[in-house]
């Protein structure tokens, strides 16, 4: 048997098997990381600028970023050299760039989701859509899932506690982040309805190319 040929075929198979919905998943991963680092860095920056200007540092991060470009010593603040201030400024610049990057990535993710799974985006939000795909690991898997499974996706720990120890079953997993559920009075019912809509939308999106 020709081994080279077989390997080439497997390579082709792999190429076919990896679809564009993997892009959504990877983009959310990077977006999550960016958000995390923005939060951490802005906390750090606040504390650092707090030493110099205690009153301004009480404000939100946007105002601090603005203030840092024209730093002004306030009462209770320690005196800082030029070097100290320029170091703070550099951090602030990077933070601004990160925020810019975050906005761009979010915009890209939205357009990407619109291209690959428009129905799913309508039924859930963009961020929920992305995290659903992340949990299911592909649009194909999500389309194959029953709506009851989608409803408790992300609540595996509670589900197994229910199965093993007979605790109450979970009513919702990650779909709780959808505003319709967190607003609803009867959350279990809302979750069930949303999950069934998501399930239909996922099937619509996955099978749209096959007539």
């Amino acid at each position: 048997m020709n081994r080279e040929k077989e390997i080439a075929k497997t390579k082709q198979d792999i190429e076919k098997a990896i679809t564009r919905d993997n892009l959504i998943i990877q983009t959310t991963h990077s977006l999550n990381e960016i958000t995390k680092s923005i939060n951490k860095l802005s906390m750090n920056l606040k504390e650092r600028y707090f030493l110099y200007a205690p009153y301004t540092a009480k404000e939100g991060i946007d105002k601090i970023l603005e203030a840092i470009s024209h730093p002004k010593k306030e009462s209770m603040g320690i005196s800082m050299t030029k070097e100290d201030l320029s170091s703070i400024k550099q951090l602030a610049d990077t933070l601004k760039k990160l925020q810019d990057l975050q906005n761009k990535q979010e915009y890209y993710l939205e357009s990407l989701t619109k291209e690959i799974c428009p129905e799913l985006q309508k039924a859930a939000t963009t961020s929920l859509c992305a995290s659903l795909l992340d949990y299911a690991s592909s649009l194909k898997n999500l389309a194959k899932m029953p709506s009851s499974r989608i409803q408790i996706l992300g609540a595996e720990k509670a589900l197994f506690r229910h199965l093993k120890e007979g605790a109450n079953p979970p009513k919702f997993g990650i779909i709780f982040s959808h505003s319709e559920i967190s607003k609803a009075q009867n959350k279990g019912k809302a979750a069930r309805q949303l999950a069934s809509k998501i399930s239909i939308a996922a099937k619509k999106d996955y099978f749209k190319n096959e007539n």
């Binding site: 081994r3 077989e6 390997i7 497997t10 390579k11 198979d13 792999i14 098997a17």
Partner: peptide, 19 residues
């Protein structure tokens, strides 16, 4: 399976199949 391909390119006695 991608990593399996890398391995089989180095070792002649492995035949990867994606199935």
């Amino acid at each position: 399976a991608k990593e399996l391909i890398f391995l089989s390119e180095q070792r002649s006695n492995i035949l990867p199949i994606l199935a």
